[in-house]
């Protein structure tokens, strides 16, 4: 693909932000300021947080100032405990996401190939999908107690539907002309999946993965917090039942930081995987 076609496609799709290789207009104006504005935003937030307990709006015993909390976090970061908890959380997150991904992709593609079965299972899917994963906590406790599998049950259940639905839509979005063309060139079923269905589905799939990555973290932490499976959530629960308020906030900040890193990571992945796709090529921010 060449630069010219890139820009051509971008212009044909007005909903996609304009500008690819050349980075025209808006990109030049807003691009460099974004990180700066982001940093200013964080500083302002921390400043407000610092001020609120000092001004006595909320007692320091219930909301320690940002400096105290960050100091507590820095202190924890020097102990292995925090990193073990981060590791446990990431294992629950990653493993759950991976299982959901594999199951959703396999099942989604199978359903794409079997429209009758899809029609048959539609109502069941619509019934199961809105069940909040946290409603399964009692079940998780009964089945798996407090170990990692409890976390996985919650994470996999929530993430599976997110990805599965995206795959279903992606598989259904195949351009009939492309499909017919592939057929007339004599491509077999597998080759069509590889060269026609897969590239069509990929952007949907990546959207599903991006959503699921955030939800997986939320549910991993929830499971640890409520069930007591190992990870940051459990550390929060222990700190909470010890009345260690600044530790609770420090761990919450750590969770937020983890969320930001995961989001950045998934966006980088999405960009790499979809670098050929107009939605990515057309994006202004780098």
């Amino acid at each position: 693909m060449t630069e010219t076609t890139t820009q051509g496609t971008a212009r044909e799709r007005p909903e996609a932000p304009a500008g690819a290789g050349g980075r025209p207009r808006g990109a030049a104006r807003t691009g460099p300021n974004k990180p700066l504005l982001g940093a200013v935003g964080i500083v302002a937030f921390l400043g407000m947080w610092e001020a609120v307990p000092h001004l006595g709006l909320v007692s320091e015993r219930f909301l320690p100032p940002a400096s105290t909390v960050l100091a507590a976090l820095a202190q924890r970061a020097t102990t292995p405990g925090l990193w073990i908890a981060v590791g446990d959380t990431l294992i629950g997150w990653g493993l759950g996401l991976a299982i959901a991904f594999v199951a959703a992709v396999l099942l989604g593609f199978a359903m794409g190939a079997l429209p009758r079965v899809r029609a048959f299972t539609n109502s069941t899917v619509d019934f199961l999908r809105p069940i909040p994963s946290v409603a399964l906590i009692p079940l998780a406790i009964l089945l798996y107690g407090t170990d990692l599998r409890s976390t996985l049950l919650l994470v996999v259940y929530a993430c599976f539907w997110l990805i599965y639905i995206q795959v279903l839509y992606g598989v259904a979005d195949v351009d009939p002309v492309a499909e017919q063309t592939a057929r007339s060139y004599g491509l077999g079923r597998l080759a069509r999946i590889r060269y026609v269905v897969w590239p069509t589905t990929l952007p949907y799939l990546m959207t599903g993965v991006r959503l699921a990555a955030a939800v997986a973290l939320i549910l991993a932490i929830t499971a640890q917090l409520i069930i007591g499976s190992p990870g940051i959530g459990q550390e929060i629960a222990v700190a909470q039942s010890s009345g260690a308020v600044s530790s609770v906030y420090a761990l919450i900040v750590a969770t937020g930081a983890l969320g930001v890193l995961i989001n950045i990571g998934v966006r980088v992945l999405e960009r790499r995987v979809l670098r050929w796709h107009t939605s990515v090529r057309g994006e202004a921010t780098a």
Binding site: L142, T146, I226, I227, G228, A237, V238
Partner: peptide, 12 residues
């Protein structure tokens, strides 16, 4: 096994 709220203990 430290279970935060204790909710998991009897079922466990």
């Amino acid at each position: 096994e430290s279970s935060s709220g204790g909710a998991a203990i009897v079922p466990g």
